[in-house]
Write a protein that binds this DNA or RNA. Sequence first.
DNA 1: ACTATTATTAATAATCATTCCGATTACTAT
DNA 2: ATAGTAATCGGAATGATTATTAATAATAGT
Lengths: 138, 138
Amino acid sequence: MRVNHQDRSAKSYRSSRQRERLLALLRSTGIHPTASWLYDQLKKDFPSLSLGTVYRNLSILIEQGLVRKIDSGSTFDRFEAKTTPHYHLICNKCGKIIDFEQRFFPEINKEISRSTDFDIESHRIDFFGTCSDCRTIS
Amino acid sequence: MRVNHQDRSAKSYRSSRQRERLLALLRSTGIHPTASWLYDQLKKDFPSLSLGTVYRNLSILIEQGLVRKIDSGSTFDRFEAKTTPHYHLICNKCGKIIDFEQRFFPEINKEISRSTDFDIESHRIDFFGTCSDCRTIS
DNA sequence: ACTATTATTAATAATCATTCCGATTACTAT
DNA sequence: ATAGTAATCGGAATGATTATTAATAATAGT
């Protein structure tokens, strides 16, 4: 008799070195990398790595809820290993994304839900402006 | 002698029918169109219209602050004629974007600025969830 | 440990939205 | 009307991402 301990909706994946290292790399950095940056880094340890592998594993990790995709207004996506809820400070000059974790407003989902016929599950807030580096330079 | 009455940083543009109609179209709709939807609509009145013209004029209108680009997590961009500050409700099921104008929190820019070394000029809030249409269906 | 099975990989081609470019056309001021 | 310049068109180029396929590696059962 065969028992499935997995959740019915969750696809299972067999482990792979590439994906393990990809997640570790994402967790070890705070720079919200692009797919190609991740590719360049991992290429050092996996000389035969393919960019498609990076994208495929990113989407698996996203499906598993371990990684989030960030769209910052650029033509390319950035990624981050999901930890705690937080917001982003995005620099208009250099495009850098900085995590902001000091405050989070979980209550606004319900507050906004009350004014509209829409079931709100989550929200994101992005703040735009100038980072300290770019302010110093100009 | 030639005097430039324009602000140094502001480029000036000659008016064009295509751009005028593009802006009018954007202002007349609430559906947050894609570039190709705009192209399809305008094509009716300008049979020789080029998609590049739509993109070029969109970027001019954005530069002039009359139009905003919205990234909704899809592979393509959506656009809206900027009116008053507002937030977006984005449906996870159908991708529809609904404007939310009932409340706006201008004060959080300063509030967040105080906790960090970042000059905040603006913010955006997107709420994700299920719209009433999709909730009814499922 | 061995084998069969099946998922993952690497390489590359395909896709899709967007941008760029050269030639042509339309405005505007003189 | 003409010259000068900006806007347009059409299509090609770009760049990020996704799909395809044959080879490779991980897992389950023996």
